[in-house]
Design a protein around this nucleic acid. Structure first.
Lengths: 219, 219
DNA sequence: GGCCCTATTTATAACCA
DNA sequence: TTGGTTATAAATAGGGC
């Protein structure tokens, strides 16, 4: 009698969904969600954006404002193609870049060795004194109270770690901007949706008004 | 008491936000949201995805699983752009080795971060346990005051970890040379945390699987 | 710009038609 | 698969620090 007609939305672990059919459903819904968010960001803030997703079946979904290719161009070769002269500079930078990368690689490899050794030493020390700390003991040896404490403590730590991870990830999204100060944002309005697959339009975003930009399903 | 402390979220029209500062705030928040959604989609469904956003100030933000460039390449192969296709592919090929170097560097740097964090965590644990022996006693034998101290101590530990993470991140920024390529490490590996206590595994694992995120600048 | 809070709006997981 | 419904989880606008 008190039975609810629905469990409503439930929390799910942030890890790969095991059940295939569930995964497919979630993929479809969340894909739509992400595309919508991307579109809204573009609309609200008037910024250019590109989003490419390969489905579990390896289908490609994409959205771009003003279109995917222009964004890719800007991302890969960050310059509005003015002259061939620029290309030379680009190449020079590329060479310098390679040298730079090689140096970094070498340095980092060395550092990695050092850190590894460091970690090993600490691990040994820790192992030696591990028995004296209940919270490091195997779980099945802990009492109820201890487990509760541990749970609370770890949840706190988890929160902090999550937040920090988020911050770091968000910050690292940023890539270096071109030193050139051009601002010509081309507002090419929507081209007809992908002609390769006419069905893509209604499939990908049946309920959404892509008044601009470009959304298509490929293959 | 009837005073509302906040208006709460208000609905806003889906059109370009007129006020510049408001737009900037919204851009930051929603950008984070979109990137999170993209990351979650990738994690939950194990699919590949790339997201590129140019800010109002024309800065580029990107995220890709496993990395932006591989997605772009895959996309371009299936979706040959109108005409500069050949040129693009050639360009992509020419960039192949630098990308490879970049990736290698990134991988190694990620490994480095893992090892470093591993070491940091172990060090902190050691330090803490040496200074505060009492907290090694079973929790149910601790008094309120001691429990409070334990809480404070754990918060301190968290802070230290945060600070260290920041320091490491800053370090990875500072080695870059202007106008040259760079690698931003954004990997927050959970492994070291796991190893602190195997029991904590399910609790501590970040809700994101940051393990695959990859961000790099080409050129 | 960043972090926190609150009140709302959105997005969605689980169901089911 | 594709779409609705429902109840709950998340995202976020507005405002303070």
């Amino acid at each position: 009698m008190e039975k609810k007609s629905s469990m409503g939305r439930q929390k799910i672990p942030m890890s790969k969904i095991p059940k295939k059919n569930r995964l497919q459903v979630t993929f479809s819904k969340r894909r739509a969600g992400v595309f919508k968010k991307a579109s809204e960001l573009s609309t609200l803030c008037g910024v250019d954006i590109a989003l490419i997703v390969f489905s579990p079946a390896n289908k490609a979904f994409s959205f771009g404002h003003p279109n995917v290719d222009s964004i890719i161009d800007r991302f890969l070769v960050r310059n509005p193609p003015p002259e061939p002269c620029t290309h030379r500079l680009v190449e020079a930078h590329r060479n310098a870049n390679i040298r730079e990368l090689n140096m970094k690689l070498t340095q980092v490899l060395q550092q990695l060795e050092i850190e590894k050794k460091h970690g090993e030493v600490l691990s040994e020390i820790r192992k030696a004194s591990r028995a004296q700390r209940w919270w490091e003991a195997p779980v099945n040896e802990l009492g109820l109270h201890e487990l509760q404490q541990l749970k609370v403590a770890m949840e706190e730590l988890k929160k902090t770690v999550e937040k920090q991870a988020n911050k770091i990830l968000m910050g690292s999204f940023e890539t270096q901007s071109p030193s050139l100060g051009e601002n010509n944002i081309n507002r090419l309005e929507s081209k007809p949706v992908d002609e390769v697959n006419p069905a893509a339009n209604s499939n990908v975003l049946p309920f959404y008004n892509w008044g601009y930009g470009h959304c298509q399903e490929l293959l």
